[in-house]
């Protein structure tokens, strides 16, 4: 980390991302951003804002609505000396670009025996809670987490959103960043200037001896809320912010589970074959298995698309009461 000022300045998650983009573009002329409506519109979630006025439309590039082609252009630019940031308008639209992400960006370095690298960043506004229904609300980070060659991040705070993006831009390999749309307006402390958050490191957000909750993205905040409420009944949770789906921070997670003996994984993506399945299996295969005092639990998205109706929409992803209930179940079993 370089001389980051830590005065209590607050920015929203979206502003923090914008600041990271601006810092990177100031520092390195190879960095540019492309995506749909990222120019004068400022991005569907106002992440790019006025950047086009500051850097010009040849560095903040509005693309046609063509995700496969746009993603491929970013891959080609990364292969030939540039440092592109590609913004998907909604992460769901990346399904149109899977060919370029999975077959090209992820594999080119390997297929060419290390002769090239693909220093590419892609940003994926993801998650439910906006009433945008099934095709604009998914959390498909596990899809990309399954692909060697990619790195997949899920920042949960404005501080991490800025520091992880700067780390991703400076990384030689393709980094996919899942940003939760509900977090864009969340405020938090963000130092001025350049700093990075290391890729692949989870963070213990709250320490406690009774059970470990490994949560990702917006679920970190729900887990922290649940921990406050559980503390009132004498249950002291440890909350681990996963931060990075690939590579996954085995060490931090296992150390926490060995300490608490109980694990709940909380994530918004569909439960089956999701990020929590990997965390659970990793712990079950590890030296932490002998320390478990209760079965591992997973709280993930329901086996359904995200519905439109707001009550239904809430019902298909884990909520604070669900986390509280799961932890009570785990802890009381043993008491």
């Amino acid at each position: 980390m370089s001389e980051a000022k830590t005065a209590g300045r607050e920015l929203s998650y979206a502003q923090a991302i914008q600041e990271a983009i601006a810092i990177a573009m100031e520092r390195d002329e190879r960095v540019f951003l492309m995506g749909e409506d990222v120019g004068v519109y400022g991005g569907a979630f106002q992440v790019t804002g006025d950047l086009v006025h500051r850097f010009g439309d040849d560095r903040i590039i509005d693309t046609p609505i063509a995700e496969l082609g746009g993603a491929g252009v970013a891959v080609g630019a990364a292969l030939t000396g540039m440092r592109p940031i590609y913004e998907f308008q909604f992460s769901d639209f990346a399904t149109l670009a899977m060919e370029q992400i999975v077959n090209q960006a992820a594999k080119l370095r390997f297929m060419l025996g290390g002769a090239v690298s693909v220093p590419l960043v892609m940003r994926f506004p993801a998650g439910s809670g906006t009433g945008a229904a099934a095709q604009h609300s998914q959390s498909l980070e596990a899809w990309l987490g399954h692909v060697p060659g990619l790195k997949v991040l899920q920042p949960a705070t404005p501080y991490d959103a800025k520091g992880m993006l700067l780390a991703a831009i400076e990384d030689p390999d393709p980094v996919m960043i899942y940003e939760h749309k509900i977090l864009y307006k969340m405020k938090g402390e963000v130092p001025e200037g350049h700093y990075t958050v290391p890729i692949g490191k989870a963070l213990v957000r709250r320490e406690g001896p009774d059970a470990t909750v490994v949560a990702s993205s917006i679920m970190v905040h729900k887990a922290l809320d649940a921990a406050e409420k559980l503390a009132e009944e004498g249950i002291d949770l440890e909350v681990v912010d996963l931060r990075s789906v690939r590579p996954m921070d085995r060490e931090t997670i296992i150390r926490s589970v060995m300490k608490t003996g109980r694990l709940v994984c909380v994530y918004e993506g569909v439960k089956t074959l999701g990020v929590g399945a990997e965390i659970s299996a990793m712990v079950a295969e590890s030296e932490a298995f002998d320390y478990l005092d209760a079965p591992i639990l997973r709280l993930g998205g329901a086996e359904a698309p995200i519905p439109y109706n707001p009550e239904l929409e809430k019902a298909v992803v884990p909520q604070v009461p669900d986390i509280i209930a799961a932890v009570r179940q785990l802890v009381r079993k043993e008491r």
Partner: peptide, 28 residues
């Protein structure tokens, strides 16, 4: 592929090289 000679590579995906070529041209 032989990137030292400007060959960014063959491709196993039909059409896979087209957007990559456009990206390389954007770089130029």
């Amino acid at each position: 592929a032989d990137v030292t000679k400007g060959n960014l590579g063959a491709n196993g995906i039909v059409g896979g090289g087209l957007p990559i070529a456009v990206g390389a041209a954007l770089s130029m």
